[in-house]
């Protein structure tokens, strides 16, 4: 039971990094980014190539792909999202679906479809934590996702850029009135989302392998973001962890009844329930419209 909980937390911490990617973009730009999963893929493939082909040490490769992800996100915002400002939100959603198709196709053309093992970044074996033996990868995944969250929460609370991003999230018009560049905030949000995507992708690939279907996992992080509230950074952490744990429990208790596969769908059942009961999640801001 404890073992299940631990691996649930480990998977969940990755889900929460992936969910953070959705939240970072939605918070400021009010866009549901369906391409987040493929941004994760870009970071993963990039660090994979940097480590295996260029022979760089893993931390350096991760750093480079984070920076590259940031630049990619920034460029995507400037090129594709900028012309869509003022268009209906649903058109923007559909645009990100198109974008994810493009990114995935380009990755497939360059790297091909077959899965590849990710070079080990962490020492093998397991680590003893609270009387439980858990694999090193799990341990580092939990630590770094907590680290990422602490960094982002501090960034939003303390730095002037973070505060102006929160201002834009609260009210774009007022924010631009007091001299905040809304367009820069938008581009930064995309950059940050792609950056954390690279981090999550590397851990995901370390646990599984490098393949083109990893973006399906980012899809399963969607429920985490919805559960926590689409515009809440802390909510993404809790939502992601909850999804990880629920998935593992479902794998243990529901799978024997249905003959497997419950892990892949339980997240969406939870999301549907969350949407029906509490559409804006546990910590999200309710959207109120007035005539």
């Amino acid at each position: 039971m404890m073992e299940l909980l631990f691996s649930g937390v480990a998977i969940g911490s990755i889900y929460s990094i992936l969910a953070l990617g959705f939240v970072l973009i939605f918070k400021c730009t009010k866009v549901f980014n369906f391409a987040q999963g493929t941004l994760v893929l870009v970071g993963t493939y990039l660090s994979f190539t940097l480590i295996t082909d260029a022979g760089l040490p893993a931390p350096l490769a991760l750093l480079i792909s984070m920076v590259a992800g940031f630049v990619l996100g920034f460029v995507i915002e400037r090129l594709l999202l900028r012309p869509m400002i003022g268009e209906p939100v649903l058109s923007v959603l559909l645009l990100t679906i198109g974008l994810s198709e493009i990114i995935k196709a380009v990755l497939g053309l360059v790297w091909g479809a077959w899965p590849r093992p990710f070079p080990p970044m962490f020492p093998g074996g397991s680590i003893n934590l609270l009387g439980q033996n858990i694999p090193q990868v799990y341990f580092w995944a939990i630590i770094s996702s907590l680290g990422v969250f602490v960094l982002f929460i501090l960034f939003y609370r303390q730095s002037s850029m973070g505060i102006s991003m929160r201002a834009v999230a609260t009210n774009q018009d007022y924010a631009s009135l007091i001299g905040i560049s809304v367009s820069r905030v938008f581009a930064l949000s995309w950059g940050f989302a792609a950056l954390v995507g690279a981090v999550g992708g590397v851990f995901l690939a370390s646990m599984l392998s490098v393949n083109l279907n990893l973006d399906a996992f980012a899809f399963r992080a969607f429920p985490g973001a919805v559960l926590g509230g689409m515009d809440s950074v802390g909510g993404a952490l809790l939502g992601g962890l909850a999804i990880g744990i629920i998935e593992n429990l479902a794998g243990k208790f529901v799978d024997p009844l249905l003959g497997g596969g419950a892990k892949e769908v339980i997240a969406f059942v939870v999301m549907l329930a969350a949407l029906l009961v509490k559409p804006y999640g546990l910590f999200g801001t309710e959207e109120i419209e007035r005539l």
Partner: peptide, 11 residues
Amino acid sequence: LERLFFGLAIV
């Protein structure tokens, strides 16, 4: 290529 063109068409 198919996915690429579908995506490009949408975008």
